[in-house]
Computed example of a mutant assay.
Amino acid sequence: MRTLISIRLRNAAVLLVLATMLCFTLVVSAPGNVAVLIAELRSPKATFEQIRAVEEELGLNDPLVVRYGNWLGSALKGDLGVSYKTGESIGPALAGRLHVTGILVAGGAIFAMILSFTLGFIGALMPGSIGDATTRIIALLGASMPSFFVGALLIYGLAVELRLLPTFGSAGLSSWIMPWMTIGLLPAAVLSRVVRVGLEEAMARPFALTASAKGLSRGRIIFRHALPNIAPTYINALGAQGGAMVVGAVVVEPLFALKGVADLFLQGVLFRDFMVVQACLLVFLTSFIILNLLVDIGMMFSDPKLRRQGANA
């Protein structure tokens, strides 16, 4: 097990290095002169000498390898550069927004898990019934509607017509309900089918048939015997949907006026602020890599086959 975990950690470290190279290349290959942009932020009528001074200050005349090493060392210390638009340091601005995106994605994941297990269990407990058909329809609709459309429907129904929830901001728990539902509905629909199909396959295996022959109820077999068998598949699918929710935050945050990392990323794209885009991409890629690492480790602990492989490695 330790050998497999060490291999996963090594692979994650390699991917992190490649991610930093990709983010660094983004700014290096961006059109225009970075020194001119920064010099004009400091002085609208920047002279040639001021531009040269900025180039020396930022090390833009150094070889690319040296520039990458300096940038990576600064990034590890939390210094992600200066925004072209505001002239402020990106690190503190990004740190102040991380918790917003984290709460959005974590809350959406919890909502997706609760709803997916609910729909999946209803279908598995009552196969072929009206309840099973209803869960299939809900899953189909949830997987077919884009997040911005779901968010618009929720805002119109729950906020405008019924006046039950606030339409924007992150002032309290009530303000997070619609964003969590918006970002978590599509993953919940996909995961519900994973639960439903996985439980159906598990109930057709010999151990489930034997338990049924001994007089155990269908519900007891599902919860005690079938559910652990779908854990590796569910964890893998949850990891994939978690990555999709991080991307979905780019749509959900502006829709509900949430000031998170995704909103900052969109502002950077809009104003061609490449340093901000670079920092946000670094956060997104790092979160993807860490999430996949946690999924791999979770699958090792939930899958006996992987545990045996780790013991023999």
Rank of each mutant, 00 (worst) to 15 (best):
I5T: 14
A12H: 06
V14Q: 13
L18Y: 12
L18M: 11
L18N: 14
T25C: 07
L26Y: 09
V27I: 04
V34F: 02
L41C: 09
A53C: 09
E57M: 01
G69I: 08
W71K: 08
S83N: 11
E88A: 09
I90Q: 15
G96A: 11
G96F: 00
G102D: 01
G102V: 00
I114W: 02
S116A: 15
F117S: 13
G120N: 07
G120W: 03
I122E: 13
G123H: 06
G128T: 01
S129Q: 11
S129R: 08
G131L: 04
T134Q: 01
I138C: 11
S144E: 03
M145H: 04
I155G: 12
Y156F: 08
L162K: 13
L164R: 10
A171N: 14
P179E: 15
G184Y: 14
L186S: 07
S192W: 00
V194F: 00
R196V: 13
E201L: 01
E201K: 07
A202I: 06
A204P: 04
L216E: 04
G219D: 14
I230K: 09
T233Q: 04
A240N: 09
G242Q: 05
E253M: 09
P254C: 14
K259V: 03
L270V: 10
M275D: 10
V277M: 00
L285C: 14
L285Q: 03
T286G: 15
I290C: 13
L291P: 10
L294D: 09
G298P: 14
